[in-house]
Design a protein around this nucleic acid. Structure first.
Lengths: 368, 368
DNA sequence: TACTACTGCTTAAACGTTTAAGCATATTGT
DNA sequence: ACAATATGCTTAAACGTTTAAGCAGTAGTA
């Protein structure tokens, strides 16, 4: 009996709470103004309001003015979800980068944003942290959010392209930049890595270097493979010997840069120049050289890749390759837009390759 | 007549094009599978499918299994827009930062993302580039996208808080971190800037410094004001004289750091230590000191703020304050979640102040 | 005058999902 | 045996917008 009493009380309490919550809701929730509210005020149909707001030619200027005035007064904010649902376009573009904490990627992102915002698109930025698994999650997240397209730079780890195929198979435009893949039949914007290696080697040769090492990325990543090929071919071109012990693959972190540089210093026949495929790894190398009192560029000339701001901050300042991040971002955005605009017609693929620029600094500049 | 003929032809062409495009659409557009498709396959109602997918207790296990199987087979991806519209929640959270290209902000973002993803939220990152105008645009953009909340760190430029008030007035949770404002009655997560100054001054005094300068931020920004107050009070506490020419306001860019340091070097009575309110400005100062062959820490001890990775990369390595970016990000996300969960009840404000940590490096460490 | 065309709106359906309400049928307690 | 409850679904409306189709009324044309 007591139990039942408690039960009944409980039920009553629950009931009261439910009513209360409904009541409170009614009190608190300042319903956002909708197109319908505007329609009611002006005694016209919601459809007319929608058209007026979009400057449809079939609506009189008088009505348009009135609608816009009322919209302003009521502090109307269009519900993007509703229009996106109706139109089948979210006006969102997903961006996936290994990390935002790099000048290159953050600059690319900024430029993508700039171009796309002008066309009414917003971007959702996600980071893969160089992890394939995180990258897959990001893709799922973006698809779930109904993005109209994805612009991505792949994680170092990524080899399996299944997930990117998934994007393509959904008919969602996919644009890769910097870290792309040959096998994937998608648009791509990047710099000419092969040529960049040539420019670097040429510069080092001009400085009188004869034994040039390369701390490169993993060969399975297209861009790093291209840099390695460029390194090899450029050495040949200048009649310099290819020495296997001078070519090292690395994950290109600061730490690994330190280790690989140390490795090079333990060679019997040390290099007189080191070309590192990333500024971060180059920084590690620079630290090791400084710690060992090896003079740059006299004893060893050092060149990085990416022109991160810190290359101008370290001692000595670090020669590096500028990757035209702004241009890459803009082109990536424009490529997406060209897809978005004519959805039906199957376009030819865009492969945009920009020429990078060598920024010569103290770490490799032997001029007096 | 000819004109009319052309007109008619044109109309015909237009008509044909229209039909053609419809036809092509029918051919190409692989309609995404919806809840309805699943319902049709199993001969149950869409409502049942929705419930099955959400593990509603009123649906039999058998049906649930069947639904999930069919969903998988048809490669079903829930339409987030539709559910968001219906439920009145977008499950999106907007994040506004001055820039992503800083270790502090990118780390905060990463941690916000981590916490929110677990709860089914996605984040939209926008950058203000320290511009008030861009910040307003970002807010509009985010409101338009129907975000469920906004987590922001204000631009240096921002003084007028009208736009942030707009967010609050829409009933959308607003959480500020790092760069907050006293006047704004919102949740805030940051470090104890006042105490941080104390810790720095104490450290410098312990190193034997007696004439400590401060290159600070603009006073109207709360955090920089606090650092300045801390600096003043700490000097008093250690019976060191307050010298107006040793306290300089700056926009804290690298370039301005250079200028302000140069300014300090031109004083008749030079400081023996400089505490800079940002690592970037401290870097500028460090460059100037190096260029003038002034030894750190012997001649002048230098301390930055933020513990950016490059502080460990420069020569000499730079003493700095670690701001607990990870913790700030996590707390900001959690604060938002607590708002999101009980929407109705007006919560008390969260003001979370973390204690920062001094990382002592070569630029100020006089121990042998 | 009689038609066509244009103007300026309205109606109603649609986008894909969720959810309150309802309705059989089966199960349980007394 | 009969009401009460539980189970497992269906129906229908709703979220806020867009848009194709349609319909008066006016203007233009032959």
């Amino acid at each position: 009996m007591v139990l039942i009493a408690i039960l009944i009380i409980n039920i009553n309490v629950l009931y009261l709470l439910k009513r209360l919550s409904k009541y409170i809701k009614k009190l608190n929730i300042k319903k956002k103004t909708t197109i319908k509210d505007i329609a009611n005020v002006l005694n016209i149909s919601p459809a007319a309001v929608s058209k007026a707001l979009h400057d449809d030619s079939r609506i009189s200027d008088k009505t348009k003015k009135a609608v816009k005035q009322v919209a302003k007064n009521l502090n109307y904010q269009p519900n993007h979800l509703a229009s996106a649902l109706r139109k089948g376009k979210s006006k969102l573009v997903g961006v996936i980068v290994p990390r935002t904490n790099s000048n290159f990627f953050s600059s690319v992102i900024q430029n993508i944003e700039e171009v796309l915002n002008k066309e009414g698109y917003n971007i959702i930025i996600t980071q893969s942290n160089e992890s394939y698994k995180k990258e897959c999650n990001n893709i799922d997240t973006l698809l779930f959010t109904q993005v109209d397209g994805i612009i991505a730079s792949m994680a170092n780890e990524t080899v399996n392209l299944e997930y990117f195929e998934k994007v393509k198979s959904k008919g969602i435009p996919l644009i890769l930049f910097d870290r792309g893949e040959n096998d994937l039949n998608v648009d791509y914007i990047g710099i000419n890595d092969y040529d960049s290696s040539h420019v670097i080697i040429e510069h080092l040769v001009n400085q009188g270097c004869k034994r040039i090492a390369h701390i490169g990325g993993y060969k399975h990543t297209r861009i790093f493979n291209n840099r390695i090929r460029g390194y090899n071919d450029a050495l040949k071109k200048h009649n310099l010997p290819l020495d296997a012990e001078l070519l090292i693959e690395s994950n290109l972190s600061i730490k690994d840069g330190r280790e690989k540089m140390t490795q090079l210093l333990h060679l019997k026949n040390k290099p007189d120049a080191v070309y590192v495929a990333s500024d971060y790894a180059a920084l590690g190398a620079l630290q090791v050289l400084n710690e060992n009192n090896i003079k740059m560029p006299e004893d060893i000339a050092l060149v990085g890749f990416g022109d991160e701001p810190f290359t101008a901050m370290v001692t000595p300042t670090l020669t590096s390759i500028n990757q035209h991040s702004a241009e890459i971002g803009k082109q990536a955005a424009k490529t997406f837009l060209s897809h978005a605009k004519n959805k039906v017609v199957k376009q030819s693929l865009n492969k945009i390759i920009l020429n990078a620029k060598l920024i010569i600094r103290d770490s490799s500049d032997k001029r007096p």
